[in-house]
Nucleic acid binder design. Structure first.
Lengths: 111, 111
DNA sequence: TCTTTATTTAACTATTAGGTTAATTAACTG
DNA sequence: CAGTTAATTAACCTAATAGTTAAATAAAGA
């Protein structure tokens, strides 16, 4: 895994456990045990996955008593989104971006 | 590297050489030698990078005489783009999508 | 046919990834 | 203070990565 930021972000995302952890953090801060619970995997394995996510700056950690809660740090995902820009024209017609936006505001009205 | 498609796509992108190869293919089909030229790396190393991209279905290959030209196959990038959707609200205000779109059609008008 | 060009395969090496179990650290709790 | 809970570190294993050089394959061209 080369040292540049984009490579380290892509590398961190190239594992379903780590993607599931990220997804789990979209609903808010979680402890390591909370994050580990859905997986049939030892705690040290989870600790290692968290280190990979932390090095990629996709999560941030703090201390609360004996807990080390994690929260999502989404900025590197924005970098990926920007990297994708050069490829969007190859897989997506331009007008779909507007379609997405229109669907989005439609959904909000219905709430 | 787990077997699922998204992991294999992210893994393929987690290397600057492979991303540069993809980028180089945005201007059209290229031979292996063409693709290898910018890199201070042996041909077998490039062959291996191409295999990773091919397994991730990010490139497709054909045969022309002794050449094995490569072309971009962007569909897996679309899957990443869709995966990103759940995180966009964390790094991007909704209205920016419309801003992007408006800038895009503005640029087209100027052409 | 012999040679050159394009590319891949084979064999090898060093490093990293992703997991394990056992031991350690740190902080709360009775 | 002793015990429990939360999490990390250490030590280890196996498989995969990412590179190398040298040999093999395939097609073109003289």
């Amino acid at each position: 895994m080369p040292a540049d930021q984009l490579s380290s972000t892509f590398h961190a995302l190239a594992d379903p456990t780590r993607r599931a952890i990220l997804s789990s953090l979209t609903t808010g801060e979680k402890t390591v045990s909370d994050l580990a619970e859905p997986f049939d995997m030892s705690m040290p394995a989870i600790t290692k996955h968290l280190k990979v996510l932390e090095k990629a700056k996709l999560i941030e950690r703090s201390k609360q008593a004996q807990y080390r809660p994690c929260r999502l740090h989404p900025e590197p995902l924005k970098d990926i989104d920007e990297w994708m820009e050069q490829y969007r024209k190859f897989f997506e017609a331009s007008f779909n971006r507007l379609d997405d936006y229109l669907k989005e505001i439609q959904t909000k009205k219905e709430e």
